[in-house]
Design a protein around this nucleic acid. Structure first.
Length: 819
DNA sequence: GAGCATCGGGG
DNA sequence: GTGTACGATGCTC
């Protein structure tokens, strides 16, 4: 045994229990590009126990080793105990490391000892076995690992190698993992809910390097060679399996495929009793009960591109919709094939010639998904290498989780014991706890020109690092006498000056690593380094949020409160300096400051940044963010609480950037969205206020005179549950009820279209189906008062125009406001 | 003003 | 899963 050595890049990891022993399975590619599964049978599950009194350790070990719990014809036992030393909130403590046979024994044994009097706490009992393995072995997915052992024969789609030794070899990364993107189209008659139980998959597209394919099962004549016809849906699903088997991708990419494509395929496959045993270990895809969160394929990394885009990249994108179409358009200006999907089902039933176009559409979606995947993969990969968890998991994590698991990995190097996750009562307790947040300098609502914007580079991380903020350094005894208090209102916190804390060390390291990379990036452009820098930034910037996140293991309310206190302190410093230099401060929020240039020049603003930076301590730095020729600041809802983050800016390229306006969602009528966008455009680009007012008034006038086509006033709302289950009946529920009475199939998921029509009573009484409503039959007053006015009210409010002024036909008022 | 309902992504 | 929890916002009562 142990004769052979192989080197490989891990892609996916799982474990199996075989003969009452856990075995780690690591799937990856060898250095010569062969798929492989490396099995490590030598890792044991364990957890830690901290006793109230260290003198009880022997006693505890003697007791715990005797535990036997019968369960499912097997026995959960403690196999051994070890004494370990670790830091618990900065203090060295002796702990007992309790080993069990298989991972599911951990909760069983924990249940037995939970109430023991001598126990202070039980820790690290809820760490998934594979994650535990990666951390303890120091293995980083996607980078070079060496295993010693021998090949074994097992039921598997790839060669298996049993390792008796395994180690991280270097940080060399996998190159060109094979990516296959896919997308399905389903039969979905217009307005009907998605019903995977009823409606078939009619098209399936794949896209990869040198690979394009669309499978469909109604024949039509075509010259497109990538279209392949099969006999029916069952064969289409078989093709799905076949193609995966032949192509052997490392990564299968989809867009919202956790939530749609794969669950749909699974549901349909079940109908035909097709076993979706596509896992490299022949494991079958299945749906778990309840809310589907993710779908994992053993050995093949299923990436849901949408998840990463919407969770991690979201802030870097301007689009407020993360649809494939919008995201692709923003990332590189490419759009989907334009088709009306409502016609797909019609074409499927009647007009086969039309289907070719839908195949092109289908392929294009998978192509966009593929390209998007290529685009974001460096970012996910770098995050994988920094946090140290598998691609599949990193793909689906949010900021707090990424931070938490980054910290978890660091515990090994700092020899820290991980605190437990909070339980129900603790969470609700934490949720109640609030503290003073960031400073906001309220803007005076209005239309402005020549605005310069500055912001602090990584304000909160630099504060955490330079003030040593963390749970273990909070109000330390050693600095009590000469404490330098955090500038909170009551001076109640200080942080240790003598010993660097665990968390601040981590943040400092993140920042300095990033700075080194940024230095390198100055001399050469590099996609990977850039992605690494971005990942480090994301982790560092999320730290403050993590400290105050109710679900965090390293939650520290006092720390979060201190971070914002320092933040307010520093931003005030800048504001004071700006004023001293004669600038008018327009707006400031958290770490950014908007100044009005007035008679000054851009150069003066740049000079101010320099001056500020020369006076800031350490690594803290103010950046020049940009110049905007025009901007409108809008007051928030009537309340006194000012206009928080509600503004639209016109940048130097003529692009309007909107921040904080009520997200115009699909349950707004088209006309409301249209009016809001157009009014902002006129105001910012043309600065022609009378024109904006005229335009809005015209629309209102047109509504009154029923000149707006019905299609622009349709509101779309989705039914979420059975009609009978509603306690409060909204307009769409009332409409749905009538549809049902007519014998239509409506239920959870149905998209209800309605128009608020003329008539008496509540809105729900007036809600009518579009086809029931004659052209112009809508309730103009409703649309004016509940759709148009709310969408532009605040904008006009700023310009000194009240909503009544919009509704009255009196034009004389205009002159008053716009001379 | 609380609490219930919906959106999002996908066809 | 060595498992608990989406987050934000609007509408109705």
């Amino acid at each position: 045994m142990g004769a052979k050595k192989i080197q490989f890049y891990p892609l996916d990891i799982t474990y199996k229990v075989i003969e009452d022993k856990p075995q780690i399975y690591i799937f990856g590619r060898t250095t010569d590009s062969q798929q492989i599964c490396v099995i490590d049978p030598n890792f044991e599950p364990y957890f830690y126990v901290l006793l109230r009194d260290e003198r009880d350790i022997d006693d505890f070990c003697n007791k715990v080793i005797k535990i036997k719990v019968e369960q499912d014809k097997r026995e959960a036992v403690v196999t051994k105990t070890e004494v370990a030393e670790k830091k618990v909130l900065g203090k060295n403590k002796k702990l007992v490391k309790v080993f069990v046979k298989i991972p599911p024994d951990v909760p069983v044994i924990r249940e037995v000892i939970k109430e023991w009097e001598m126990i202070e706490s039980i820790n690290e009992y809820d760490i998934h076995f594979t994650r535990r393995y990666l951390i303890d072995k120091g293995i980083i997915p996607l980078t070079l690992v060496q295993a010693e052992g021998d090949f074994v024969t097992l039921k598997s789609r790839v060669p298996c190698f049993k390792a008796n030794k395994i180690e991280q070899l270097s940080s060399d990364s996998i190159t060109n993992p094979k990516i296959l993107a896919f997308d399905i189209e389903t039969y979905n008659p217009a307005g009907k809910r998605y019903a995977p139980e009823q409606h078939p998959i009619i098209m399936l597209a794949f896209y990869g390097e040198n690979f394009k394919k669309v499978i469909t099962w109604k024949r039509f004549s075509t010259n497109l060679d990538y279209i392949e016809f099969v006999e029916g849906e069952a064969q289409l699903i078989q093709k799905f399996k076949e193609i995966l088997e032949k192509q052997k991708p490392d990564i299968l990419a989809g867009y919202f495929s956790d939530g749609f494509d794969l669950p749909y395929i699974i549901t349909r496959a079940r109908k035909y009793d097709i076993e979706l045993d596509i896992g490299l270990d022949h494991s079958t895809l299945s749906l778990k009960k309840g809310r589907i969160e993710s779908i994992q394929i053993t050995g093949i990394v299923h990436l849901d591109v949408f998840k990463f885009v919407s969770k991690i990249m979201a802030r870097g994108l301007d689009t407020d919709s993360y649809s494939l179409d919008n995201v692709a358009a923003e990332v590189w200006g490419e759009r989907k094939v334009e088709v009306d999907l409502d016609n797909l089902s019609i074409a499927w039933d009647n007009d086969f010639k039309q289907l070719e176009k839908f195949c092109e559409y289908n392929l294009k979606d998978s192509e966009l998904t593929y390209k998007l995947c290529i685009k974001i993969l460096p970012n996910i990969e770098e995050m994988v290498k920094i946090v140290g968890l598998p691609l599949f998991e990193i793909n689906r994590m949010g900021f707090s989780q990424l931070d938490e698991w980054y910290i978890m990995r660091q515990t090994k190097f700092f020899n820290e014991l991980a605190p437990n996750k909070p339980h129900y009562e603790e969470i609700s307790e934490r949720r109640k706890h609030t503290y003073q947040g960031a400073y906001v300098y309220e803007p005076k609502p209005g239309l402005y020109k020549d605005i310069v914007v500055f912001d602090f580079r990584s304000l909160y991380p630099t504060i955490i690092s330079s003030h040593n903020i963390g749970p273990s350094t909070l109000n330390c005894r050693c600095c009590k006498d000469e404490a330098k208090y955090v500038p909170t209102e009551e001076k109640k916190y200080w942080f240790c000056k003598k010993t660097k804390g665990f968390l601040p060390s981590i943040v400092e390291d993140l920042i300095s690593r990033r700075n080194r990379i940024k230095e390198m990036l100055k001399t050469k452009k590099d996609v990977v380094l850039n992605a690494r820098s971005e990942s480090l930034k994301v982790l560092a910037n999320s730290f403050y949020g993590y400290l105050g996140f109710f679900g965090a293991r390293w939650y520290c309310f006092e720390c979060a409160e201190s971070v914002t206190a320092y933040g307010r302190y520093y931003i005030h410093k800048v504001i004071d300096l700006a004023k001293k230099h004669g600038f008018d401060v327009l707006y400031s929020d958290t770490d950014s400051i908007f100044l009005i240039l007035g008679s000054k020049k851009k150069e003066d603003a740049l000079k101010l940044v320099e001056t500020v930076n020369s006076e800031l301590p350490g690594i803290m730095e103010l950046d020049y963010e940009g110049f905007y020729p025009s901007g409108i600041f809008v007051s928030a809802k009537q309340g006194e609480y000012g206009a928080k983050k509600k503004y639209a800016l016109l940048d130097e390229k003529g692009v309007v950037k909107i921040t904080g306006f009520e997200t115009v969602r699909r349950n707004w009528s088209f006309i409301a969205k249209e009016v809001q966008g157009e009014v902002l455009n006129i105001v910012l680009k043309e600065r022609d206020l009378p024109k904006a007012v005229r335009y809005a008034k015209q629309v209102i006038f047109d509504l009154k005179n029923k000149k707006i086509p019905n299609e622009k006033v349709v509101i779309y709302t989705q039914l979420q549950k059975e009609i009978g289950d509603y306690t409060s009946v909204g307009p769409h529920v009332a409409v749905a009820q009538r549809l049902k009475n007519k014998g239509e199939d409506v239920g959870p998921g149905s998209m209800i279209k309605f128009i608020v029509a003329e008539g008496a009573g509540k809105i729900r009484d007036k809600a009518k189906l579009p086809e029931e409503t004659k052209e112009g039959g809508y309730d103009a007053d409703y649309y004016i008062n509940h759709q148009i006015i709310p969408s532009v009210e605040r904008i006009f409010d700023v310009l000194g125009y009240k909503k009544d002024d919009l509704v009255t036909a009196d034009q004389s008022k205009l002159k008053e406001f716009f001379r």
